[in-house]
Design a protein around this nucleic acid. Structure first.
Ligand code: FES
Ligand code: FES
Lengths: 162, 162
DNA sequence: CTTAATTTGGACAAAAGAGTCTGAAATCTG
DNA sequence: CAGATTTCAGACTCTTTTGTCCAAATTAAG
């Protein structure tokens, strides 16, 4: 569904939103905590910066920060900035100009799903996701649980690693 | 969302389902009518054959045919056979083992969408889509309209080409 | 002013997806 | 049997995505 770039972008922005204490968060910190390739993540976040969703600052004490309050950035914005909005508008069969005038055989059903996805993505804010990420057992990546970072004594529910 | 292979497979099977008159439909016929690369489509349909959704027959008068009645093949079957069922089960962020035990911050909302997608894909049969494909102005590919093939005098609603 | 930390911007490599081609095997027709 | 038609199987190329790396520009701190 989503590209790797997009997934990394979402995870990173949630991480930044949850670190409201830091003014600018260095990309190296995000990358090492979330176990994402630093150089690759750098490109993704540069794109979010160019799209106006983040601010960046160079030099010591530099890093990236949200350009707007986390309540005003939605999942739709993030996906749109990285993968583009075609998911929310395109034909399931990839035909150009999806519409009732020239529908494909799945149009009626696909648009229903697509519209619900759009509504949910527009409603779901970074703030909501960051709060959720702070709950117990919620994970941002396969490795990273925010609750575990705050309270290292907490063990995950299915204790794979000791 | 869907790979090109999957889209071609869906278009081709709808085409075959709509051609109920022919016993076996040659892949070359499907490819030329739907303007899909013959060799590429061949591979896709081979996969559907191996998955048990289609039968094939070599030699003159050969081709491919549905292995089951078109009322018993669903969009879910087609997608599952080509792209796999991960769309219907995987985490939006690609995390392994999507579940309420270790959710990601979007789990709750994504599973809602995903479940509706699954229900619709399981309900939508080839028969339904083939019937829809026969309606006026419904297109199977950018180029191919079934109604136009049956009644060449009919012009598309937004007459791009003369 | 010098050094270290950081983003920026691009080049480059590896992997996966999409598409092309060729030859072999099966099957019908005459 | 001979020849034509068709699927089957695999090698190969091209493009996009993913990932790695390095040098230049910016800024804070001593
Ligand atoms: S035309 Fe295919 S989904 Fe609208
Ligand atoms: S864990 Fe991410 S959608 Fe379920």
């Amino acid at each position: 569904m989503l590209s790797k770039s997009c997934i990394y972008g979402i995870q990173a922005t949630i991480y930044v939103a949850a670190n409201a204490s830091q003014e600018f968060v260095p990309i190296s910190q995000i990358a090492s905590e979330l176990k994402i390739s630093f150089h690759f993540l750098t490109k993704v976040l540069q794109q979010l910066t160019q799209e106006g969703l983040m601010n960046s600052y160079r030099g010591p004490k530099g890093g990236v920060a949200l350009a707007k309050p986390s309540t005003e950035i939605t999942l739709y914005d993030l996906i749109g900035a990285i993968d583009g909005t075609s998911i929310f508008t395109e034909c399931m069969l990839g035909l150009p100009g999806c519409g009732i005038a020239e529908p494909c055989p799945a149009h009626e059903h696909w648009t229903k799903i697509r519209n619900e996805l759009t509504v949910i993505a527009r409603r779901l804010t970074l703030d909501t996701m960051a709060k959720k990420a702070g709950e117990l057992n919620v994970r941002l990546t396969d490795e990273f649980r925010y609750a575990q970072k705050l309270f290292p004594s907490i063990k995950p529910v299915n204790g794979a690693q000791a």
